[in-house]
Design a protein around this nucleic acid. Structure first.
Length: 139
DNA sequence: GCCAACGTTGGC
DNA sequence: GCCAACGTTGGC
């Protein structure tokens, strides 16, 4: 079981839209970055991820689950780009803001804190549990 | 709105 | 294969 973090602008694709898709989920398309794509290729069905709103909110708002492994991104003909499908699992009771992550010593090595521009990131199990705790979930 | 960080592109 | 130029992302 691996853990990930998916970043999106609210105006592009929001948590509410993700929730509205229900268990069917939706492909995480539009990624045009090799590192992010490579992370998606490593994902397995059942892996969990955080859903992060960038730019305005700058906070982790919910938990998603990978429901289809990497496949071609249907929004482009360019064969280089793959994506996975994810579905919403549940929201955090309390959103965990970027600032909270920066102020939390246990998260000092988190990719979110150190590489703000990567849109699909790995999360360690320790970081996962820490953020879930901060978000009001037992994990 | 600015700017730093980073990735990509293309000329040589 | 190097590196300058350029574009994009995202925090502030």
């Amino acid at each position: 079981m691996a853990y990930w973090l998916f970043k999106s602008e609210v105006s592009t694709w929001s948590w509410d839209q993700q929730v509205a898709k229900g268990d069917a989920g939706e492909q995480w398309d539009g990624v045009r970055n090799y590192q992010a794509r490579n992370n998606m290729r490593r994902m397995k069905i059942g892996d969990l991820g955080f859903f992060y709103h960038s730019q305005k909110e700058k906070e982790i708002v919910g938990i998603v689950e990978v429901c289809a492994e990497s496949h071609p991104d249907t929004t482009t003909d360019d064969l280089r780009w793959d994506c996975v499908d994810i579905k919403a699992v549940k929201p955090l009771k309390l959103p965990v803001t970027l600032q909270m992550c920066k102020e939390e010593p246990r998260l000092e090595n988190m990719v979110l804190v150190n590489n703000t521009r990567l849109s699909v990131q790995p999360v360690t199990e320790k970081e996962w549990k820490t953020v879930c705790g901060m978000g009001g979930l037992k994990s």
